[in-house]
Amino acid sequence: MSDSHELKDMKLFAGGAHPALATRVSELLGIPLGRMTNKRFSDGEIQVKIDESARGAEIFILQPTCLPTNDNLMELFIMLDAFRRASARRMTVVMPYYGYARQDKKIKPREPITARLVATFLETCGADRVVTVDLHAEQIQGFFNIPVDNLYGGPMLGRYFVQQGLREDPEVVVVSPDVAGVGRAKSLADMLKCTFVVIAKRRPAPNQVEVVEIVGDFVGKRCVMIDDMIDTGGSIISGAQALMDRGAREVIACCSHAVFSGSARQRLQDSCLSEIVCLDTIPNEEGPDFPKLKVLPSAPLIADAIRRIHLNESVSALFEGWR
């Protein structure tokens, strides 16, 4: 993908969160992963040691902050501190999945804003730039005083559905599982040249969803639901069931981040969904793939973004036509 000579002044390192993704990204960039030792003290504290010179280099650290979120975040902070003390010229944190993003605003009294807290920690530890994939809320970028590149997984999902013959199919409609995701659903609908539908819902409690209304024409249609993440599966499954109960012919779900907490895999497999499509921004270590799941590689997107950042080329050019 890349001429390794043009990337000679940069180094790519990875924490322990998703080594398989880091390996694929390094192969696409044509550069080896940096050498680093990650160990634990007897009490569980994380120990990091950089095993090669970082002085004057541009450092990219790939670390999604997925489960175990606290450990992966702490490892990332320690890595940043190590590179800062090793005189790295610039440090870019590549977080395919940005943990603690769901508390991005204060809704009730005495609630924290954890997305802002993580941003503060990253800057304090010395990050000069952050790269993410499909932030839970785009306004999180405003929590930083450093550049943030939010990559979109939607075009990769859209290209998969185009390959499956869904473009310009009059029987296809895109569905947003909530009002907040309308922009994402409209962009995918534009890519597939179809209309979109919005599900209005309420959350009486965390991880509990109640469908209130469905706005748009979906009866007799193949519905493609798109969201940034699937956690317990409750929101996607209840939305899909509501669509089927009210006349939809088929429901396919897609997302960038397959969190799949608890029994989500089994619940999704047993649901009315015909297929679940996701990216590999999070390692699939908690359980095996299930028959309905299709995983798409995110490494080409991440590697291209890293290359463009290092060469001071446009990152937004990757998403022309996607809003």
Results as ranks from 00 to 15, higher is better:
G181E: 09
L279S: 02
S298E: 06
K105M: 13
H257M: 03
H136A: 05
D43R: 11
L301N: 05
M1S: 15
M74N: 05
G165H: 04
A137V: 14
S176G: 07
R202Q: 14
K11G: 01
R265S: 12
A253R: 02
M1D: 13
T23S: 10
I237H: 02
A264P: 03
G126E: 04
A127C: 03
R202E: 15
P112N: 09
L135G: 07
P19M: 11
E138I: 13
P32A: 08
A248F: 07
L268W: 02
G233T: 08
L29R: 05
T65C: 11
T232F: 01
L157D: 07
F77V: 15
K8S: 15
D134K: 04
V118K: 03
D3F: 06
C223Y: 04
R24V: 11
A115D: 12
G16I: 07
G158R: 06
G181D: 02
C223N: 11
E138R: 15
L33H: 05
V251A: 13
L67Q: 15
D43K: 10
L192Y: 00
P147K: 13
A137L: 09
K39F: 10
E210R: 15
S261Y: 06
L268Y: 05
L301Q: 03
G262R: 11
E171Y: 06
L80T: 09
R323I: 14
S53V: 14
L318W: 12
V94P: 05
D128V: 02
P288Q: 03
M225F: 06
D169W: 00
F143E: 03
C272D: 01
A242R: 08
P64C: 08
D43F: 10
Q266M: 11
L76D: 00
D81M: 08
V211N: 05
Y98Q: 05
R116N: 12
F144W: 06
P155G: 11
E27N: 14
L62P: 03
V118Y: 02
A54Y: 00
L7K: 10
K105S: 13
E27Q: 14
R267K: 14
E313A: 13
V172Q: 01
T65D: 04
L117S: 12
I214G: 08
I59C: 01
P155Q: 13
E275M: 10
G239M: 03
E168D: 13
Q241H: 11
P291K: 06
V131L: 05
T37R: 14
L76K: 08
V295D: 04
G99L: 09
E52K: 10
G16C: 08
S53R: 10
A137K: 15
V211C: 04
I230P: 01
I113V: 13
P112D: 01
D245R: 12
L117I: 15
D217E: 15
Q241E: 14
N145H: 14
A189T: 00
I61D: 03
P19Q: 09
M10F: 03
P291M: 04
C272R: 11
V224D: 01
C255D: 11
P147T: 11
K292H: 08
R323C: 14
G234Q: 02
E286I: 13
H136G: 04
E52C: 12
N284D: 12
